[in-house]
Design a binder for these strands. Structure first.
Lengths: 201, 201
DNA sequence: ATGCATAGTTACCGACCGGTCACACCCATG
DNA sequence: CATGGGTGTGACCGGTCGGTAACTATGCAT
């Protein structure tokens, strides 16, 4: 029987495995996947390389797990969206734009999954499956939201918004906060009104 | 006096320096900047590491030069655009979309400059200046084109198109050709008509 | 022919990286 | 108290990387 009992009560530090995944997410984001070594990750997690390799068979395994972890946290956003405007899909679409606009400012490193896709060129790297799953899921949910909001071509609008968001994030990496991403919200609203009529309010 | 005399006539192979830059561009694109070593670049250029280091003080120098080379080739696109529809800015805007749509299919590795921005996390890396120059230049030219086409908010439309393009390229890396980029042309046209009225023709 | 700049060759260095091993340790459970 | 699983430690391995040194070969200009 697993004695860890989850991460028990408040105040007790998380188990090594979780600390490693958290540190990996943060360091991958800061230095890139190829830019950080397993030793540094273990040290940041306040443990050591041997323990890391007892939980993850290889660095590639850890990469996949870290990406899964990040994607699960990102997926939680959809529940918040539904919670704030329950039943009103069009309002959810508008607040999707607002939420993404805020994230754009607060998360200057872009999308970890997309960054990993750029960095990992080996086409058979196991992380690509994780990335593709996540991106397809996001795409599906956004398309669903557009459809529920009564958009005639939900796939086209969802893909347009996806591209605008992805582009805004990468352009922040290339030219900083003063680049094209300054018009992110403006671009989203233009796209939405082109496909579904002007924003209500 | 430089004896190389440019790369003289046809049939004579380019000088080592140019071969190195070309190989570097190609290999950086295929394997990522961190994913390829100077030794492999020199070998691909049919020369050796020592000659490479006589022309470039460091790998970082070579990275900058390669990015400059790529950006100059990309900048040539604007002359073609002007040449095909001289004086007709709106037609140039429409054919910008067409040209980018084609590039999207023919260049599956995305924008080398943007990829470099994702990969090189050290904020003081000299390549960032090259990247920023290029992206600012592209942004300026696209904005100029929108303004000449009579768009009321040329900056907003240019940034929207920039984000859509950037997003389309990175989403191809993440989810392949079947992802959001399938709606690239559709998204551009929606943006253009939202800012400047429907496409003529 | 001489001289000089450029290019090629081989070997080498120190640093780092992913991954493994043997062993000591701690602590909860029986 | 004993046991055993998870954890910490340090050394180690083979490989690769960026970068350098010393020497040789080539080719062009005077």
């Amino acid at each position: 029987m697993k004695a860890t009992e989850e991460n028990s009560g408040i105040g007790s530090r998380p188990a090594p495995r979780e600390r490693i995944v958290s540190s990996a997410c943060e360091l991958f984001r800061q230095h890139g996947i190829r830019g950080i070594g397993v030793d540094a990750i273990a040290e940041a997690a306040d443990t050591n390389k041997m323990t890391l390799y007892r939980h993850f068979g290889s660095k590639d395994d850890l990469i996949c797990e870290a990406l899964r972890h990040t994607s699960e946290k990102a997926a939680a956003m959809w529940e918040e969206l539904e919670a704030t405007n329950p039943g009103d899909a069009r309002a959810q679409l508008d607040s999707w734009v607002d939420a993404r606009t805020n994230c754009l400012c607060s998360e200057p490193f872009g999308c970890d999954l997309a960054n990993a896709a750029v960095e990992l060129k080996e086409p058979d790297h196991p992380a690509h499956a994780v990335i593709e799953n996540f991106k397809n899921e996001q795409r599906r949910r956004l398309s669903d939201l557009c459809r529920r909001a009564g958009v005639e071509e939900p796939d086209a609008l969802a893909d347009t918004l996806s591209m605008i968001l992805e582009g805004a994030r990468v352009s922040r990496l290339a030219t900083g906060s003063e680049g094209p991403s300054t018009h992110f919200a403006r671009a989203c609203e233009a796209a939405i009104s082109a496909f579904a009529g002007p924003r209500r309010r």
